[in-house]
């Protein structure tokens, strides 16, 4: 059967370096030209196509990539991923309105805050396994939201308004409706995240995560410091979520605890599961489809969560590896299979 994932990997592996560069540049060019397709059948009835591309699509892609490090690579079910998104967004909101710092200066701070939160949560939670981790992280996500809701010093239920847009770079102005510029900015973050994950995947960290996902006890007994690598997965995942939060806040310019419910965690989980846990391209595709379709098709947009819940159940039962599964293929070794 034709397998797109394996076919793509094959083409990539057989290509020489300059061809690879060309393929990558081509892909980036296609991605970058997406916002130029506005005004076509791609327009959505709910919101302007350009803005849908920025949120939810691009933000979903970033978060799904981050969550994929935790769930897809390391097999840790994190149901409170929205907390890191919220922490990034609130860092942006608070520092942006109360200090003179601009979005680019706040971005690393927001990432650091989210990573710190990942550490604080990870140290107790990652001693537990599977189910318990899921519940604890779910609780953490809710604690963050309820705290934001009840602390009037950070806006309480009203949230934070008047968050500044990013400052002009190279004469490009981040006005509220300059969706293209936002999209390209987010695309850079997406590319950086992809770079990070691919880099780590083929090295020690990637193998450690993979071994933990497949058999944690065996990993520990083969000398893998499992706890440390689980913490790393958590913290890196958190950093990506935090970055998404900062960007989101400096795009919407208004945030409130309502933006950070458990449902966001579930939506992102659905993107990862639908696309294919552990495979970057699958996850990206999943996030694009699940980010875009509910806005495109009215019927789904009302029952968005219902559909996403059903996606989780159906995918797990019928195609647990997602639409683009992780690598299953092995190199063919001519003439070496006789002694089986």
């Amino acid at each position: 059967m034709f397998n797109l994932r394996d076919w793509g990997a094959d083409v990539w592996e057989r290509s020489s370096r300059p061809i690879r560069v060309l393929i990558a540049l081509g892909a980036i060019a296609i991605a970058a030209s997406l916002p130029l397709l506005g005004g076509t059948f791609l327009n959505t009835p709910v919101a302007d196509y350009g803005s849908v591309l920025v949120f939810p699509v691009a933000i979903f892609v970033i978060m799904a990539l981050g969550l994929n490090i935790v769930i897809g690579k390391s097999g840790l079910l994190d149901l409170g991923y929205v907390a890191f998104f919220a922490i990034g967004a609130y860092t942006m909101g608070l520092l942006g309105t109360k200090t003179g710092l601009n979005s680019w200066e706040i971005l690393p701070i927001g990432i650091a805050m989210a990573m710190f939160a990942g550490l604080i949560l990870g140290v107790p939670a990652l001693r537990l396994r599977g189910d318990y981790l899921a519940i604890i992280t779910l609780g953490f996500g809710e604690i963050v939201r309820i705290t934001a809701l009840n602390l009037n010093s950070i806006g309480g239920a009203n949230g934070i308004v008047g968050i500044p847009t990013p400052p002009t770079v190279f004469g490009l102005e981040y006005t509220f409706d300059n969706h293209r510029l936002y999209f390209w900015t987010f695309l850079i973050i997406i590319l950086l995240t992809i770079w990070m994950i691919r880099r780590l995947s083929v090295r020690r960290a990637g193998r450690a995560w993979e071994s933990i996902r497949q058999d944690e006890d065996a990993a520990e007994l083969m000398g893998v410091p499992t706890f440390r690598y689980k913490i790393w997965a958590f913290v890196l995942g958190a950093s990506v979520g935090g970055a998404a939060g900062v960007l989101y806040a400096s795009k919407t310019l208004f945030i409130s605890p309502d933006n950070f419910t458990l449902q966001v965690s579930i939506l992102i989980l659905a993107c990862v599961v639908f696309g294919g846990m552990g495979n970057i391209w699958g996850v990206i595709l999943g996030a694009i489809i699940l980010g875009y379709l509910p806005d495109r098709i009215r019927f789904i947009s009302d029952a968005r969560l219902l559909v996403f819940g059903a996606v989780l159940v159906l995918m797990m039962n019928l195609r647990p590896d997602g639409i683009l599964p992780r690598k299953k293929r092995e190199k063919a070794l001519p003439g070496k299979n006789q002694n089986e």
């Binding site: 079910l77 149901l79 599977g130 189910d131 899921a134 579930i266 989980l269 659905a270 599961v273 969560l305 219902l306 996403f308 819940g309 059903a310 996606v311 989780l312 159940v313 159906l314 797990m316 039962n317």
Partner: peptide
Amino acid sequence: PLISAIGMSIV
């Protein structure tokens, strides 16, 4: 099964 359960709960 865990993810399936969460999905069912949402549905």
